[in-house]
């Protein structure tokens, strides 16, 4: 009987210590709405296409997002990120127009690129940072695909340092690759694989704040 109790206590302890039960340090439990906008810093996605004939560096500014995050229950995180295809830049206006045109991202028909979180798996929580895998629906060029992206979440509780924007501050870091073929982006014949990479490397550091 004593052995059974000891075993149960050990199982309970190991469950509590597992990432699924981890909580971001110093942040009270409870779901909060988090708004990603440009109030703390300019929210921008950086992307790179590395192809044998050309390396294109680009940006997608004005990334927005609406999230619901409970620092004590990160696996319950939900929300959506999006940005406008027309805001994407490569440093060459003609190339920007091609990128936004019907052969590539078709901004007229599909004005936004979005990612909607469906589920979150917590990998690690270390102080005010948490590493999670966010699985959700990525929509590019009107094509939706379920993908999992690694995300590092940082939390800064409202205080003197965050006084210029109301609420707790939240930072989201991510890096992942996106295959053009997965989203039926064919481009001009012969260009993908020579001048445009088959995969696009994406990285983003996004800032948001909790709202009432």
């Amino acid at each position: 009987m004593r052995t059974l109790k000891l075993l149960s206590a050990l199982v309970a302890l190991s469950l509590l210590a597992s990432p699924a039960f981890a909580q971001i340090a110093g942040v009270p439990a409870g779901a909060r709405k988090v708004k990603l906008n440009d109030q703390i810093r300019a929210n921008q996605i950086d992307w790179t296409s590395a192809a044998p004939m050309e390396k294109i560096k680009g940006t997608a500014p004005g990334v927005k997002g609406d999230l619901s995050i409970d620092p004590a229950k990160l696996e319950a995180m939900t929300g959506k990120f999006w940005f406008a295809v027309m805001d994407m830049k490569t440093g060459n206006t003609t190339r920007d127009r091609h990128l936004q045109g019907s052969e590539w991202l078709n901004a007229e028909k599909n004005p936004n690129i979005t990612f909607e979180i469906a589920s979150v798996a917590v990998r690690k929580v270390d102080g005010d940072k948490a590493s999670v895998d966010a699985t959700g629906s990525m929509e590019v060029n009107g094509v939706k695909k379920r993908i999992t992206v690694p995300v590092t979440l940082s939390w800064k509780v409202a205080g003197e340092q965050t006084s210029r924007v109301a609420g707790d501050w939240v930072k989201i870091d991510t890096k992942f690759d996106l295959k053009l073929a997965d989203y039926k982006i064919a481009g001009k014949a012969g260009v993908v694989g020579s001048k445009v990479g088959e995969s696009i490397a994406i990285s983003a550091t996004l800032y948001g704040h909790t709202v009432q």
């Binding site: 703390i40 440093g91 060459n92 940082s154 800064k156 340092q161 550091t205």
Partner: peptide, 21 residues
């Protein structure tokens, strides 16, 4: 030796953010 003409250059600025990163 760019493949396409660049009218704007991407500049990288490394700094500490409000989170100390």
């Amino acid at each position: 030796m760019h493949a396409a003409t660049q009218f704007e250059q991407q500049v990288e600025i490394t700094e500490k953010d409000e989170f100390g990163d």
